[in-house]
Write a protein that binds this DNA or RNA. Structure first.
Lengths: 156, 156
DNA sequence: TGGAATCAGGACCGATCCGGTACTGTTTCA
DNA sequence: TGAAACAGTACCGGATCGGTCCTGATTCCA
């Protein structure tokens, strides 16, 4: 449920990789090799991140990519919003005809509560935190649901 | 980002509608009419929710659907998990070959941190809370990002 | 007891979007 | 001046989502 795009997945892997050695400037082929991700995708995502202001690009022979800000200042919410668009949750068209029903609208408006909760959770995690692995988290999550973990986790 | 399926959207609308009048037993056509959702979809989702144990169904002439538990005991996390599958976030295949790289694995394992955060947020909201509208939330969310709200909110 | 109302469970289809590739610039530096 | 690297866009196949339809199974009531 609440799936995250593979592009975003890759993007966070790349950003985390860069955050682990912020002084270094890395080019696309290097990043692809070091993260084991397909080069075309890596290149595509890096361009996106530059356009969104999360990365700096340097052209030319000794070019490459680097973070625009220290990893501690970049949150997951920001990254995900950059790679997947704005933060919203239902499809409450501003048509008005749909939301004018007293029974329906309270429901829709409450989506925003969920939205805010998730957003808050994502804002609480910085890129810097992502660089060093967590010892206890694995257990924490497995407790939560139980069903096949580690097998297919592209969803929230 | 982090999209929610329309099916889940509808599902929560339906459950919230039922939660608002827990004693009543409602059939599919009634629910569809009262929530302004297409009947075939409503019917489809209700069946799913029965199979997942969130709803009770009563067949026959005076049949219909009702909640299996009080609305205060049903969380958003539970509902979403029922309608969209287990709770996970990346695609860390348990192949092993991919996760054996020291550079990569810390990143992957940290997905679970995000996962836990989002899950926690969703577990904090019950169906009962969804039945009465929130006064301040709308403003709260609009502040967050700003970009066209109310227009297209099928994503988190 | 039979028929109407309702739920149950698939099969199915079209459209959209995602993941991925390729190609053609443009910039920088040796 | 040419090689290396980024920039942008167009394109395609496949998966999935939203949605419909049809055929049972079950219950209640006249």
């Amino acid at each position: 449920m609440i799936r995250i795009t593979k592009q975003t997945d890759y993007g966070i892997v790349l950003l985390t990789h860069l955050a682990a050695q912020p002084e270094r400037q890395v080019n696309a082929p290097e990043l692809a090799a070091e993260t084991q991700l397909p080069l075309p995708m890596v290149s595509k995502i890096l361009k996106l991140l530059v356009r969104e202001g999360l990365l700096l690009s340097h052209r030319g022979v000794k070019g490459g990519y680097s973070l625009t800000r220290p990893p501690g200042e970049i949150t997951m919410a920001e990254i995900i919003a950059s790679l997947e668009g704005p933060i919203a949750i239902t499809e409450c068209i501003d048509d008005g005809s749909d939301c004018s029903h007293e029974q329906l609208c309270p429901v829709r408006s409450n989506w925003q509560r969920i939205n805010a909760a998730v957003r808050g959770a994502l804002e609480g995690i910085t890129l810097a935190e992502m660089t060093h692995p967590l010892p206890g988290v694995q257990k924490l999550v497995t407790i939560g649901d139980g069903r096949h973990f580690g097998a297919q986790l592209r969803q929230i």
